[in-house]
Design a protein around this nucleic acid. Structure first.
Lengths: 213, 213
DNA sequence: CTATGTGAAGGCCTTCACAGCG
DNA sequence: CGCTGTGAAGGCCTTCACATAG
């Protein structure tokens, strides 16, 4: 397969979600124009993104909603496949993520919650018990974890990710506010709240507030 | 000022945080090489980013750590300025974000928690009481809120953001898994957990697992 | 002699424009 | 005739390379 831009992959998720909505509304076809507007981009971008993979559309009609949605789900790997997810660090944020609606999309399944704090152990979230992170490597391997969500304090994040990688996990979603280094072949995505807020701050001081006359 | 790439702004936050660490370690100077490695980029990128703004460095020595950190904080607008933040939708995720360590950096102050659910009203998080979102416009205006963090269900997110914008807020951090439309002049940042997870999923199915012999 | 500052080159992603299909 | 599929053009961001400063 050709090399797919990271930006395109992000939009595929957005297309897929928007198509789910249109499918519920029982819309049969959708144009690149409408699909683009629905996720905040333009028609040309949609067509370019999709033509990386296949010819999904019918000239003159648009894309069949259900068909395109299923094909995109397959491309993203969230169809007929369930990824096994572990949460490491079950503090306020980690606890909130388990069972949060944003994750309740098919294709992902929580199989382990780990924490080093004895006080947190034994707590239940969505039917899962928090276990001792001392046994991290064994648990991650035994449960065949595919993706680790890391919500530990910044100072221990690198060490935790190192252990996760040793356990054979190749995909990490990092919420710790620090930069993580990993060997090649490991994919790390960072969700960095400070970076987002500071980006907004930069925007606020560099734009003139509209005057109120 | 020249037009600063979004990507550069993101890195400025990372530089700033890395410099805080080096400042605590009482390091006096840092090279573009070391600063780049510290946040996962290269020396040329660091120099290019910084030279958008000023000449911060000393050829032959590098950048003075404390000086550069303060200047970057000023550029990002998190020095001598405190942005007033409201959280709208205080469910699991919203509640976790209030008081989460990632936000405990100077420059941001929570001044309102709003929810439409009567059961949530009156609950306290970090000393703030959850109030009725019926009075959103009034509360946001009276408290001079600069940034709204939106953690409501996807179906109501657009309507909530519309009201936030009417109330004069120009910066939104959206956690709802849906695309938000706003007038020009409003900055929306999306933190989309489904998109991140599906990006990892795409990576996993498109890379060969290293063989174990 | 080391490390910055910066124009130029390169590469990647987006937008354009239109041929071609239904 | 409308809308897709796609090469080409354009624009933005990253990387290079070296003049310059200490």
């Amino acid at each position: 397969m050709k090399n797919i831009p990271q930006a395109t992959v992000r939009r595929l998720s957005l297309y897929c979600r928007y198509l789910e909505q249109k499918e519920r509304e029982e819309q049969a076809y959708i144009s690149s124009q409408e699909l683009g507007a629905g996720i905040g981009t333009n028609a040309a971008q949609v067509r370019k993104d999709l033509c990386f993979f296949d010819r999904f559309g019918t000239p003159g009609r648009g894309y069949p909603v259900g068909f395109l949605r299923r094909r995109l789900a397959a491309i993203l790997g969230i169809k007929g496949q369930s990824w096994r997810v572990a949460v490491i660090g079950v503090g306020k944020l980690g606890g909130a993520l388990v069972g949060y609606g944003g994750f309740n999309r098919q294709g992902f399944e929580f199989v382990a919650l780990l924490d080093s704090d004895p006080d947190k152990r034994g707590r239940r979230y969505s039917g899962l018990v928090v276990e001792d992170s001392a046994g991290m490597e064994t648990i991650l391997k035994q449960r065949e974890v595919d993706i680790a969500i890391v919500t530990v304090p910044a100072v221990v994040a690198q060490r935790v990710v190192d252990r996760v990688v040793v356990a054979g996990v190749r995909a990490v979603l990092n919420f710790a506010p620090t930069t993580i280094n990993t060997p090649v072949g490991i994919q790390v995505r960072n969700v960095d709240l400070a970076v987002e807020l500071e980006g907004l701050s930069f925007f606020l001081i560099n734009t003139k507030q509209a005057d109120h006359h």
